[in-house]
Amino acid sequence: MVTGTRTGTGTGTGRREDAAPTALEAELRRVAGRVPDPELPVLTLEELGVLRAVHVSEAGRVQVELTPTYTGCPAIGTMSSDIERALHEHGVPEVTVVTVLAPAWSTDDISAEGRRKLAESGIAPPRPRGTDGAVPLTLSIRCPHCGSAGTELLSRFSSTACKALRRCTACGEPFDHFKEL
């Protein structure tokens, strides 16, 4: 369980939240944000919406704030080390990646470009959640292969906790659906 990250248990780690990012912080954020998600490599961490902030202290130390998609997301350790590597390669000697829980990540944090890429790779993107409603949503989920709205649920949990398994009743293809969270 050694991931090289510390877990922020609340809002405590979000220092300098009001300060606008400096040019260097914005640049490092672009570098960290380009790192692909280990489980959905078509998406970058920025598109997935899990990169919260990059802070550079006066001493030049870099701290990256990352939020997990799911509480038990096993990819968070890989994400952290991938970010560290990308920033090292960019010339940053010392990087700390901290995990923050609040505010909780939501599928609404996935960017429009991220949703487009998901659909393009055969994963039906999550529908907008909007308010904190109950889980069951009845809007139709379109087949990412043929576009039909006639799809059925096979299993509420698929290859990862964040996806459900569905099948298209028109073209017959099974596909993953990124569940709304």
């Binding site: 609340g10 799911y70 829980l101 609040a102 889980v135 569940k179």
Partner: peptide, 15 residues
Amino acid sequence: EFTALAAKAVKEVAY
């Protein structure tokens, strides 16, 4: 101490 975790986990538990 449990607010952040509960707010996150409750969405998963709903599933």
